[in-house]
Design a protein around this nucleic acid. Structure first.
Lengths: 220, 220
DNA sequence: AAATATTTTTAGACTAATCTAAAAATTGTA
DNA sequence: TACAATTTTTAGATTAGTCTAAAAATATTT
């Protein structure tokens, strides 16, 4: 229905819209999609003609309901494929993104529905991001960042804020893996770093920077 | 590495080469790939420059070792994805081909290796076609066509000769499904049709046309 | 072997997506 | 408010893949 490129533009604009609430300007799209502003202008004209977004010269763009729907469908596909790669094929946390960028453009509604079923209708992908449902609904997640936990509190590692490959690799090499139970032993007043215990055995020292980028499900 | 289109041309030429032993001519490729002869001429020039095939004007083409390697890798990906779709996602026999046509172009060696592992290193896809190994080796299969069985002989349904959606749907609606045991009760002399018994219960009458297009593994 | 039919190639054009360089509009600042 | 800086758009070119129509080569028939 929509091309590889069109889907990528819509997804990028959708993600920018999630953060800003104002119309998205050309340069922001160009940076996010790693292309030139002139190319973006061309493409948004085309998307505007197809009623996927509203565009006024020099004023930036806003997705229409249709554009948003297509974007959310693409996000849904991306996150389901990431979950497949991680849960079924044992790809590491940091390796799934690039492959899912390709897989998300496969055209088949039936494929996505069956994949969703096969994975057990997961609510979140391996990075802790919510997976939109078949009708585009997105569940609120009750994850908090690790640095919000008090001394003595426990959480289950459920996702990340920073998605960079560097950060994800760092986590994995320290056994900070999805699903692991983590307990805050001490918050060091001096630098706000965290001393934590992972699933009974390992004790680790985490910088505040790291603690601010890990999502946990808080245990009562 | 190679584009979607390049891979499709190489795969098509490879399949034509499997049948003919002579150089493959432009028109045959055009028909197989559903395009025009002029487009084929353009593309084979390009593939020839990239050393993927040998081309002499008006004489047709022959794949080089490199071209053959790329073609076999694409076939391997296609058949592994078909197996995934059928075995894991429960797609019917006739639905897997079109989706695999898209999935076969996803670029990631690691993905294919992990998928192969996940599927248990299958030797054949759901149509009974052999899945090339990681190094391009293709196992001989000892399947025979159903119409070669004598009265009283038994086989396991293992694949098809005709891959058309029409034929595959016909088989499925008659419970002629991969893995089922089939026994020849009678070969009707008049029209060479087959009376068969499927896995203990159903008795079916199969035309010779149908019997010639089902592959079975013969039981001793 | 000449005439005819078929196949293949060339020439030139088209679309989607991209780019660079320059022009136009907007925003920020003195 | 006017000048400078930044952002955005336009104009024109490029690449991959495709097409039609015509020309050239090959194959077939008489």
């Amino acid at each position: 229905m929509y091309s590889f490129t069109e889907e990528n533009y819509l997804k990028a604009i959708y993600k920018l819209q999630e953060q800003s609430s104002e119309a998205i300007n050309t340069n922001a799209i160009a940076i996010s999609i790693q292309t030139k502003a002139a190319s973006v202008t061309d493409m948004i004209k085309k998307l505007s003609e197809k009623k996927l977004l509203e565009y006024e010269k020099y004023k930036g763009v806003v997705l229409t309901e249709l554009g948003k729907k297509v974007a959310i469908e693409t996000v849904r596909k991306h996150r389901l494929w990431e979950t497949f790669l991680h849960n079924k094929l044992n790809f590491t946390w940091d390796a799934v993104h690039d492959i899912a960028e390709q897989l998300e453009h496969i055209q088949s509604q039936e494929l996505i529905d069956k994949l969703d079923d096969f994975l057990g209708f997961p609510s979140h992908d391996p990075h802790g991001d919510p997976i939109p449902g078949k009708n585009g609904e997105i569940k609120e997640s009750n994850f908090v960042i690790l640095s919000e936990l008090m001394e003595g509190e426990t959480g289950i590692i459920s996702g990340v804020v920073n998605h960079s490959s560097l950060f994800l690799k760092h986590l994995e090499s320290n056994e900070l893996i999805l699903g692991k139970r983590i307990m805050v032993e001490e918050v060091v007043a001096f630098d706000n770093s965290f001393q934590v215990k992972i699933e009974g055995k390992k004790i680790l020292q985490l910088s505040n920077e790291v603690a601010r980028n890990i999502l946990v499900k808080k245990m009562k």
